[in-house]
Design a protein around this nucleic acid. Structure first.
Lengths: 141, 141
DNA sequence: ATTTGTGCAAATCGTTTGCATCTGA
DNA sequence: TCAGATGCAAACGATTTGCACAAAT
């Protein structure tokens, strides 16, 4: 029963999500969920996979990210035009975004609250609230 | 002194922003700032300009939107991957976003408040807080 | 006259897709 | 076996850029 302990939880995670635990998916999931919460772009994850000796194609990285998102394992974060960020923390929380280096960081849960939300237009309901706190270098003065 | 009253304020607005009041810029600014707050994409504005008999090129629309943004006349709103939205309301406020039809709406100022913001990482300061309330169709049930 | 803006088409960037090949159950 | 996954390269949509022409000061 004591197989490769690092990979087993990941395998189950994929199974539960109805995704075949393929080489690539196991590797990508391993990278994503190994060390706490992460915020990656497809390109970043692709590079990291290659660096770890897992020769996935960029297309597969995209496919995988979207499948994981669809399965509720990841969450997309809208930051700005082009690049899409994926967040391994799918619980309700908000973000800091460093405009200097394009890095996303979680804002500790429970600290930040949004109050006074007016009711949405008729026939619609809130699906999610995104809060992005944009950061810039403090102007030393 | 009583010239074309509709265009004069726009002309001054551009002058103050250090932008030459060209035909296209006047036309685009006219469309953008004429009737209250608006949320446009480059493509939308382009179509609207053409419909109003102003044959601007899409490239110029992009240039203009960015120049206006740089001059503080517009604000960019990050919604999701691809399209970039520009908002004529540059004051501090937040948005509803209808995922059904891709429409942005202002949330009345003063109603919504963000509390409990933790202090940003050392050397950084908050430049702006974006709040996007995503809406979906209420599931009739 | 000189500087700045404009239009077009080609180039770029992130992302998606079609299709032949491979792989896990 | 065989549905589902992968890789590649071509296709894509939004945005940008290079350069010749036009317009504003």
């Amino acid at each position: 029963m004591a197989l490769q302990e690092t990979k087993e939880p990941v395998r189950g995670m994929l199974r539960n999500a109805g995704l075949r635990p393929t080489r690539q998916r196991l590797a990508l999931a391993g990278i994503l969920f190994a060390k706490g919460d992460r915020h990656v772009t497809a390109e970043l994850l692709h590079e990291e996979a290659l660096a770890n000796g897992v020769p996935v194609s960029l297309a597969t990285v995209y496919n995988t990210l979207h499948q994981f998102t669809g399965a509720g394992l990841l969450r997309e974060v809208a930051v700005e035009g082009s690049k899409t960020y994926f967040d391994t923390n799918t619980s309700n929380h908000y973000h800091f975004f460093s405009e200097r280096d394009g890095v996303l960081m979680d804002i500790p849960v429970g600290k930040l609250a949004v109050d006074g939300l007016p009711s949405p237009p008729a026939g619609m309901e809130v699906s999610r609230i995104d809060v992005l706190v944009r950061l810039v270098d403090k102007k030393s003065g």
